[in-house]
Design a binder for these strands. Sequence first.
DNA 1: GCGTGTGAACTGGTTCACAGCG
DNA 2: CGCTGTGAACCAGTTCACACGC
Lengths: 210, 210
Amino acid sequence: MKKRIPISAITRLCMVFRLCDELLFQGQTSISSTGIGKRLGVAAHTVRKDLNFLGEIGDLGSGYDVAKLRLHLANTLGFNQVRKACIVGLGRLGSALLKYDRFGPCGFCVVAGFDTNINRIETIRTDIKVYPGYEMADVVRHAAIDLALITVPAGAAQGVADELLDAGIRGIVNFAPIVIDTGACAVAVRNMNVVNEMRILASLMTLGAE
Amino acid sequence: MKKRIPISAITRLCMVFRLCDELLFQGQTSISSTGIGKRLGVAAHTVRKDLNFLGEIGDLGSGYDVAKLRLHLANTLGFNQVRKACIVGLGRLGSALLKYDRFGPCGFCVVAGFDTNINRIETIRTDIKVYPGYEMADVVRHAAIDLALITVPAGAAQGVADELLDAGIRGIVNFAPIVIDTGACAVAVRNMNVVNEMRILASLMTLGAE
DNA sequence: GCGTGTGAACTGGTTCACAGCG
DNA sequence: CGCTGTGAACCAGTTCACACGC
């Protein structure tokens, strides 16, 4: 690899990848950097710079071939191999995610759900296997699960994360409203916090109104 | 206002605000920039720079008074006034959000849910009023709703957004896997997309492994 | 002409370093 | 002596501008 890709570029490239699927579905086989920029709300320069991290890929004069672009993105970012994921905490949000049917088509396989509440794991109706919390570390290790979505209450999140890290998890999407400490582990954490996003919007409203 | 606060700083300040609540709950009344940094996974310099956007606020020598800090954040970012929110699309995710009970304590009041599917709005059990989709614009306008959480399928998201923008919405949290075009409207949109976050993690795993 | 690829210029956000005050 | 506040230095990422190919 010539150069490290900045995280902001990675984020956008993931969006481009999703866009490719959308375009292919709509039957559009080619698109320019300007076109991508419009669809993603990003400047055309930025799109070109980002895509250059994959090497030269565009067809001069006529933009990018969507299928080819998608393939290169998949190769570079590792979307070819299916990543195994699990959901920790099967409350309303966790259950909703467990039943979400778009992970598969997107290249992720949710192989397990966990909850400390035995009642919950017995009443959930789903094809995905659900386990009591104390089996988590074992299952994660044995099934070689890559990603965990943490949807437990704030108070339990750090503990769960510690267990997951110890079990060799490779990445975490954290829905709990706390910042997870990964200690020495070089494991990436992505935080998704609705309230925080709403607060950001509220701030922008307040500050924007001046 | 002396200077515009960059969005990255706003994001962090919102996290600091949440941390204040946590600290107060735990009975901690004072904290240093270093302490905040540790809890948030951010450098102490950054914390101080961010907090300076609120003006001079720290007590020299002994850090920041948590309650005072919280108050200043609330004043500057507008967390004093309760913002009204609504949820558009009452599928699994939308329903989960509708039943989420932490919005209130965080200063947001979810006043309405919307869905085009009449069956859904009749079967949902909640204290929050739910309406059929065609009443959305009216309700948003009349109740002066500030924020909308969009949890409809990708194909319907842009249409819903257009309606909301027209009805005078002030901010959008978009859960649909598309980029919303706000046209001329200076309305902020925050995207929350699990699959995209998972893809980012997968990319980092792939690139990190080199 | 349109559209990519890329070195160069720029910008603003982050990091540093230190003055100032309890 | 610790910790804040802040101007200055730095740098990553963005934006520009233009050469090149279709």
